[in-house]
Design a protein around this nucleic acid. Structure first.
Lengths: 231, 231
DNA sequence: TAGATTGTTAATCGATTAACAATC
DNA sequence: TAGATTGTTAATCGATTAACAATC
């Protein structure tokens, strides 16, 4: 499973919160709404404790100013820095379906350093068409392109069935991180970073909350009952 | 902010784990790979403790069989049941861009009870085109359609700028849950369920891990140093 | 039966929050 | 200065894991 890094690695939840701070500060700057933010301001916007905001910012080395707050610019820079937005990450997209196309065209990603250098699809009918600004190639070229461009990141937007096999091929060719949109859980060596973007999880969660809200409306006093059917 | 439900509501992390279990059992059944699963088997596949798996399943009312494990079918049914996959959730999509199109065409969602009844876009040029199996309508029809179909769920795939205003319009028209793909954090009344699908968070996280891995390779002994620049 | 696996209580761990002193 | 806000230590809370008895 590869050795664990020495406890330095920032945790998922923290990274996610940092992104929320980043959005907030960026929007604030766009609105020209002063150049200082207080931890309380961020906290109440995101409905979280202001102490946690201060801790998080301290963890990435941002210092605040008593009586003033944090400089928006400094917060932004520190997050960019820690998350590596100023590096450029070359990536390939495998799977030129609608999701692949949507991601390839998402220009916003370039703000975060992503540069899609090639796209591939199993289906020969797709070869030559453009998604984003790259044309789709045959899977035969996968390994040569990855090696030539020294690509370390792959975006996987194929159907469930071929996903595992393609992921293994990507890793063998040198890819170190996979952003997986296929609805399967990939099994890969421990030193490969995998992010499962199981989009249905979001849907399931919303559906669950809708259902729960409705049931509470129907019988408000059952709110404490076991979630399983009583039958 | 609306009253808090009485502690019954399942937590985000648990729901996410349930989905992973669901994928696993579903794939296992597809492979015709026996009809019992042990907590250990699931745990080692997902690299998590088997006790947690048992706790989670207990929490949704599934009982295992000593010496056997859990019946795959029962696990699947319980999860479907708790997450409400057998309900049908009518939804509208607002924003017929690429992401909207990709989601509208994602037939997999029907497994989870989603039924897209209409799609809207601000751009008149898009009106009449099809995404998935629904044609795109003018935003003028938003409120009437929501009311007529009694829609409670909206998928928001518009750009950042109009997102907040449209979300408010949706809520006013009766929508109770919003699945937000716009890269902004929406501010809405506390009884509206919002799921922010900030796709860039995934990218940021991968980029961060890639960067960290690379730095460790460059100077393996600095692995404990402060994440902030030393300069 | 013996042995594997569940179910559950108790112990541990980590993350969040509360309290408050330090700072400008 | 007085007062607002940070920075940090200590207390709390909740989630995960360890241990082990119950079960078939």
């Amino acid at each position: 499973m590869g050795r664990k890094p020495a406890g330095k690695t920032l945790k998922h939840a923290l990274l996610e919160r940092l992104m929320h701070y980043y959005y907030y500060v960026t929007e604030k700057k766009a609105k020209n709404d002063g150049d200082a933010v207080s931890s309380q301001e961020i906290g109440s916007f995101l409905t979280m404790d202001d102490t946690l905001v201060r801790k998080d910012l301290a963890a990435i080395g941002v210092r605040g100013y008593p009586r003033v707050g944090f400089k928006a610019e400094e917060v932004k820079d520190a997050i960019r820095n820690v998350l590596g937005f100023d590096h450029t990450y070359k990536a390939v997209i495998v799977g030129a379906g609608r999701m692949g196309g949507a991601l390839a065209s998402y220009t916003d990603f370039s703000n975060y350093g992503l540069r899609v250098v090639a796209a591939f699809d199993l289906d020969p009918n797709k070869h030559g068409i453009f998604i984003g600004s790259t044309s789709v190639q045959s899977m035969e070229n996968l390994e040569p392109v990855i090696e030539q461009h020294n690509v370390r990141l792959a975006i996987l937007t194929v159907p469930a069935e071929p996903a595992q096999a393609i992921a293994e091929r990507l890793v063998k060719a040198g890819v170190q991180a996979i952003w997986n949109f296929a609805p399967v859980t990939l099994t890969l060596p421990g030193d490969v970073v995998v992010r499962h973007e199981h989009i249905s999880v979001g849907l399931a969660e919303l559906a669950y909350h809708l259902k729960t809200a409705q049931e509470e409306r129907l019988d408000p006093d059952e709110a404490d009952a076991s979630p399983a059917d009583t039958a």
